[in-house]
Computed example of a mutant assay.
Amino acid sequence: MENAELYKLAERLKETREYLGVSQQVVSEFLGISRAAISAIESGKRKVNALELERFSKLYKFPVSYFYGEEQSDDETVSLLARTAKGLTEDDKKQVLKFAQFLQNIGNENTSKKGE
């Protein structure tokens, strides 16, 4: 793996962990490696092996391809949304649905304005 790819992967792992609000300690316990190793991975100083990447994927509920910066297809994105929503309360699911519908309506408005 080239240095640029290593740093891209490291950055994506760190951003995802921070976005999800998970501590390095929780990640280290889940992966079975030290917190210092997580820090080294996230700073690009240590390579992540395939098994560790699979565990990151499982913990963060993102496909491995996401961490390499690959674009997800609509089907993968919908599946990811569904898996993520499983842990939400019914009220939270309704709020997510309302927000998705809001975004869809905004997108439709922007599309129709471009055609004017």
Rank of each mutant, 00 (worst) to 15 (best):
K8Y: 08
N3H: 08
A4D: 14
I38K: 03
S39D: 08
F30V: 04
S23N: 06
E2T: 11
I33P: 03
L9G: 05
R17C: 08
V26G: 06
V22N: 11
E18T: 15
L13R: 01
R35Y: 05
S34C: 07
N3P: 12
N3M: 11
I38M: 10
A40F: 11
A40G: 08
L9F: 07
E15C: 12
L9T: 00
V27W: 00
L13H: 11
A37I: 06
E2W: 08
R12S: 02
E2S: 15
A4R: 04
V22W: 03
E29R: 00
E11T: 14
F30I: 09
N3W: 11
A40T: 05
Y19P: 04
V26L: 10
A4K: 15
G21D: 01
S23E: 00
L6H: 02
Y7C: 12
K14T: 00
F30L: 03
E5I: 10
L9W: 03
N3I: 09
T16S: 14
K14Y: 02
E15Y: 14
A36T: 15
V22L: 15
E2V: 10
Y19T: 13
L6K: 14
G32F: 02
L20W: 01
N3T: 12
Y19H: 06
K8D: 08
E2A: 13
Y19M: 14
V26N: 03
L13D: 10
E18N: 08
L6R: 13
I33S: 02
I38L: 09
S23K: 09
G32I: 09
I38C: 07
L20N: 05
E2Q: 10
Y7F: 06
I38N: 04
V22M: 12
N3Q: 15
L9P: 01
N3L: 12
K8S: 09
K14R: 13
